[in-house]
Computed example of a mutant assay.
Amino acid sequence: MIKIIRMLFLSASLVYVGAWAQDPVYQVGVDGLACPFCAYGIEKQLQKLDGVKSVETDIAKGRVVVTMDDGKVLDRPLVEQAVKNAGFTLRSFEQIEEPAQ
């Protein structure tokens, strides 16, 4: 009986932890975004970085949301270089809880 209770507790704990685990998300402000081609260039450069899971660009707001694989961290110097390689200027960089809508 005790083994069953322990297994149920362990299973419930793993489900609880998995439900709360989130991939790290970063918001990157980029000066000069004006068209879908610009967005493509930024996305292409950022997707080359280790651990990048997804990249979403909001051209109107000049904002790129980068979601990382679980356990990976996005470093500002690498982002700054990727943005520069795409021909743009990094305006801001911050880790966020959830992507802003």
Results as ranks from 00 to 15, higher is better:
I4D: 11
L33K: 11
S92F: 04
C35L: 01
A82W: 01
T57D: 01
Q81N: 12
E97G: 14
E80V: 09
G29S: 14
A21K: 09
A86N: 06
E97D: 15
K48M: 12
G62Q: 01
V25S: 13
L49K: 05
R6T: 04
Q47W: 01
L10C: 07
I4R: 10
K48Y: 07
V52E: 06
F9D: 05
K84S: 14
C38W: 04
V79T: 09
E98Q: 14
I5F: 03
G71P: 05
V52G: 06
F37T: 06
V15K: 02
M1P: 01
E43M: 00
C38P: 12
Y40L: 07
M68S: 08
L74P: 04
G62K: 01
A60H: 04
G32A: 07
V83M: 09
L46G: 07
S11Q: 04
S11M: 12
A34V: 02
A21W: 06
Q45C: 06
T89A: 15
R6K: 02
I59G: 01
A60I: 07
D75M: 10
E94I: 14
K53W: 05
D23S: 15
L90W: 10
E80T: 12
R6W: 01
G87K: 08
R91V: 12
G32R: 11
F37M: 04
I96S: 13
F93E: 06
A21G: 01
L78R: 14
D70K: 15
R76F: 03
V73Q: 11
C35E: 00
L78Q: 14
E97M: 14
V17R: 06
V73G: 00
Q95V: 12
S92M: 14
R91S: 15
Q47D: 08
D70Y: 05
K53L: 12
Y26P: 05
V66P: 12
G51D: 06
F37E: 04
F88G: 08
E43K: 00
S13G: 08
V28N: 01
Q47N: 13
K53C: 09
D23P: 10
S11G: 15
W20Q: 15
Q81P: 02
V65Q: 00
N85I: 03
G62R: 00
E80D: 14
V52M: 03
L33Q: 11
G32Q: 10
A100F: 12
V15M: 09
V83P: 06
V64M: 11
R91H: 10
Q81D: 13
A19Q: 05
V83W: 11
K84V: 09
L90F: 13
L78K: 14
A100H: 02
M1Y: 09
M68W: 06
K72Y: 07
V66D: 08
D69F: 03
G41R: 14
I42P: 07
T57R: 00
K3F: 02
Y16A: 15
R76E: 15
L10Y: 02
L78T: 11
